[in-house]
Deep mutational scan, measured.
Amino acid sequence: LSCHYCHSLFSGKPEVLDWQDQVFQFCCRDCCEDFKRLR
């Protein structure tokens, strides 16, 4: 899998964000929080 925010590859459990009828996967909570802050 690749992170939607930083595009790094990861194999662990992703942080998942269901936002505006789309599902995004992130490598860590920090990337998820940064993505939400920018949107």
Score class of each variant (00 low, 15 high):
S11Q: 04
V16S: 09
C32K: 13
C3Y: 00
Q22H: 14
D21N: 10
F10C: 05
H4V: 10
L17W: 06
V23N: 13
S2F: 12
D21M: 11
S2Q: 14
L38E: 15
W19Y: 14
K13D: 10
K13I: 06
V16E: 07
C3F: 01
L1V: 15
V16M: 10
D18M: 13
V16I: 06
F24P: 03
W19R: 13
S2T: 08
Q25G: 11
R37P: 06
F10T: 05
F35W: 06
C6P: 00
C31V: 00
S8I: 15
D30P: 05
E33F: 06
L17A: 08
C6V: 00
F24N: 09
H4T: 13
L9K: 06
L17H: 08
C6G: 00
L17D: 03
E15V: 10
L1M: 15
C6K: 01
R39A: 03
R29L: 09
H7E: 13
F24Y: 05
C6S: 00
C27A: 01
L1D: 13
L17K: 03
R39M: 10
C31T: 00
G12L: 04
D34S: 05
K13R: 10
K13F: 06
W19V: 13
C28K: 12
L1W: 01
E15D: 05
C28V: 03
E33T: 06
P14A: 04
F26W: 02
D18E: 07
V16Q: 09
C3A: 00
S2C: 13
D30N: 07
R39N: 15
R39D: 15
Y5Q: 13
D18Y: 06
R29T: 09
C31F: 01
C32Y: 11
D21S: 07
F26L: 03
S2Y: 15
R29N: 13
Y5S: 10
S8Y: 13
V16A: 07
P14S: 03
S2D: 15
Q25W: 10
F24W: 10
D30A: 10
C3R: 00
R29I: 09
F10I: 06
G12S: 08
F10N: 03
E15L: 09
C27Q: 01
C32M: 13
S2A: 12
C27L: 00
G12I: 03
D30Y: 05
C27R: 01
L1T: 12
D21C: 04
E15C: 09
C32H: 06
Q20H: 08
Q22A: 14
D30C: 09
C6W: 00
K13T: 07
F24M: 13
E33I: 04
C27N: 01
E15S: 06
Q22F: 10
V16P: 06
G12N: 05
P14Q: 03
S2W: 07
D18A: 09
L1E: 11
C6A: 00
Q20F: 13
C31A: 01
Q22P: 07
C31K: 00
Q25N: 14
D30L: 09
H4S: 14
V23C: 14
W19F: 15
S11A: 03
Q22W: 08
Q20L: 11
K13E: 09
H7L: 11
C28G: 11
E15Y: 07
S11Y: 15
K13C: 06
C31W: 00
H7R: 10
W19Q: 14
L9N: 06
C3T: 00
F24I: 11
L9Q: 11
H4I: 07
F26I: 01
E33Y: 05
F35I: 01
Q25E: 14
F26S: 02
F24E: 05
C3G: 00
D18V: 07
R37E: 06
Q20Y: 04
L38W: 14
S2K: 15
S2V: 12
E33A: 08
D34C: 10
W19N: 13
L38Q: 14
L17F: 07
C28N: 05
D30S: 10
D30F: 04
Y5G: 13
E33G: 05
Q20R: 13
S11F: 03
D18L: 10
D18T: 11
D34E: 09
K13A: 08
K36W: 05
C32P: 02
C27G: 02
F10K: 02
Q25A: 08
Y5P: 00
D30T: 12
C27V: 01
K36Q: 10
D18Q: 11
V23I: 13
Q25L: 05
E15H: 08
S8F: 08
Q25P: 07
C3E: 01
R37D: 04
C27F: 02
Q25T: 10
F26N: 03
R29M: 14
V23Q: 14
R29A: 11
E33L: 05
W19E: 13
V16L: 07
C28F: 01
Q25S: 10
S11P: 02
F24V: 12
D30M: 15
H4P: 07
C27H: 02
Q22C: 12
Q22G: 14
Y5D: 01
R29P: 11
H7S: 14
S2G: 13
S8C: 14
R37L: 11
F35C: 02
W19H: 12
C27M: 02
D21K: 11
F24G: 06
R29S: 09
F26H: 01
D34H: 07
L38T: 14
F26C: 02
R29E: 09
L17I: 09
C3H: 00
C28E: 04
F10R: 02
